[in-house]
C-alpha cells in the first residue's frame, strides 16, 4: 500500500481535536479500518470522509457509538434502496 494515501492517526487526532480512544472505539466496532505500520496507526484517505462524519455525529450531535453503528447501517440501506429505486424507475420508463 502506498504510504502517501495514509494519514497518521496521531496527527489526525491533533488536527481534528478528537481523542484517540474514540478512534479506537470506531476501529473495535469495525466502522473504520486502521492500518498499522511499525506500530503506528494510519487511516486510508478513502475513509476520511466517513471518519469525519462519525466525528460530527459523536461530538456535534451527541450520538453514542451504538447510535452511530445503527445510523451507519441504516444509511447504507438507504443508499442501496436509492440505487434500486433509480434502476426500477429506469425500468418503468420502458413501459411509460
Amino acid at each position: 500500500m502506498q504510504t502517501e494515501n495514509l494519514i497518521a492517526i496521531d496527527e489526525f487526532c491533533v488536527k481534528h481535536d478528537v481523542e484517540l480512544s474514540f478512534i479506537t472505539s470506531l476501529k473495535q466496532t469495525g466502522l473504520i479500518e486502521i492500518t498499522t505500520i511499525e506500530r503506528e496507526w494510519f487511516i486510508h484517505t478513502e475513509q476520511l470522509k466517513q471518519l469525519e462524519k462519525f466525528i460530527r455525529l459523536y461530538y456535534e450531535l451527541d450520538i453514542n457509538l451504538e447510535g452511530i453503528e445503527t445510523i451507519n447501517h441504516l444509511l447504507q440501506r438507504i443508499e442501496t434502496m436509492q440505487n434500486e429505486l433509480i434502476l426500477l424507475r429506469n425500468k418503468l420508463g420502458i413501459y411509460e
Binding site: 462524519k53 460530527r56 455525529l57 456535534e60 450531535l61 450520538i63 444509511l75 438507504i78 443508499e79
Partner: peptide
C-alpha cells in the same frame, strides 16, 4: 439538528 443534519439526510 439530529433531525435535519446533512449526514443523516443524504
Amino acid at each position: 439538528a439530529r433531525k435535519y443534519h446533512p449526514d443523516l439526510n443524504p
